[in-house]
Simulated scan of single mutants.
Amino acid sequence: MGRPFRQQIDEGILDRAAALFARHGFEHTSVQAVADAVGLSKAGLLHHFRSKETLHQAVLAHAEGLGQRVLGQVRELPHGAARDRRAVEVLVDVALAHPGVVALLLAPVTQAGTGAGALEPGSAGAAALEAFGVDLETADPDRAVRVVGALGALAVLTLAAHQQDQITAWRPLVVATCLDALGSRRPGAALPDPDQVEA
């Protein structure tokens, strides 16, 4: 029974650390800042992760795992509206469950030039773009802007849903907003089912 509890604590630490890394970058995030954010002493945090570098690597590995989970849900679907819808739904569920990690995952897309990290092939952020079949260097500008807009809306709205304690109520609205940004939702179309199973 101790393992799931330890994993839950570690995931909470990773999520809070990811949010700080996304906001301030690795260099400007101290171990003490992460410890304060998770309610641990510096020594307590270092008991879970032996150094800032180890913590950062664990955050990146966790983000990569989430990115691959998203890709796994859409990889077999052909590019188009159905894949876009599924990618949005999965990304929204992941973002609502892991807001800090998603802030880090999407930081290279939504915070270009802030030192949050590069969008390298195989990175978690690149996986989010790949879910929509987009390579920013070669994509049609209209499609690239729509996808980046949808991801930006997803990041901002899921974080706001957490701050407002409206995760369940806002989920269908976030999905609809992202689909609107993609140009995939027809005017007057029904909102997604609010009883959708979350990640």
Score class of each variant (00 low, 15 high):
A150L: 04
D142C: 11
K52E: 11
P99S: 08
V197E: 12
G115R: 06
D180V: 03
V90K: 00
G72K: 09
P172K: 13
D135E: 10
E53V: 06
P121I: 14
Q8E: 14
G113Q: 03
V59R: 00
I9L: 15
E137A: 08
E53W: 09
E89I: 00
A128W: 02
A103H: 02
D15M: 03
A176I: 13
G117H: 03
R185W: 15
R146W: 10
I167F: 08
A33D: 04
D15C: 04
A153Y: 08
A87P: 01
R171S: 05
A153I: 04
H98Y: 15
R6P: 04
A17D: 02
L104K: 00
D36H: 15
R83W: 08
A61V: 12
S51M: 11
E198V: 13
E130V: 01
M1Y: 11
R185Y: 15
V148K: 06
A87Y: 02
K52Q: 14
A61P: 12
H28W: 03
L151Q: 04
A95S: 09
G39F: 13
G188H: 15
E64A: 12
A82Q: 07
V90A: 04
E130C: 02
S41A: 10
A199M: 07
D135K: 03
F21S: 00
A82L: 07
Q164N: 08
V31G: 01
P172L: 09
A128G: 04
P78N: 05
A22T: 02
H98R: 15
A139K: 01
D142A: 14
P108K: 08
P194G: 11
V148S: 08
T54L: 12
A126E: 13
V134W: 01
T29W: 00
A124T: 01
A126V: 06
A43K: 15
L182Q: 09
G115M: 07
A87D: 04
R185L: 15
L14S: 01
A131Q: 05
P194T: 10
L46G: 05
D93P: 02
T168N: 12
A199V: 09
L182M: 14
A35Q: 03
G188I: 13
H28P: 00
L45C: 11
V147A: 08
D180E: 11
G149K: 05
R69T: 13
A17T: 01
G39E: 12
S184K: 13
D15K: 01
Q32V: 09
R143C: 11
A87S: 05
G117R: 00
L154T: 01
V70D: 03
H98M: 11
A37N: 10
D36Q: 15
G80A: 08
G65F: 14
R50V: 12
A37M: 09
A37R: 07
V175M: 13
A95I: 04
V174S: 06
H47S: 09
P192D: 13
F49V: 01
A155F: 02
L91F: 04
G72V: 08
V197C: 10
A43E: 14
Q73R: 12
T114Y: 07
D180L: 03
V70W: 03
D140A: 10
T138W: 15
H24F: 02
A150F: 05
M1K: 09
G80E: 07
A35V: 05
A150V: 04
D180F: 03
Q8V: 12
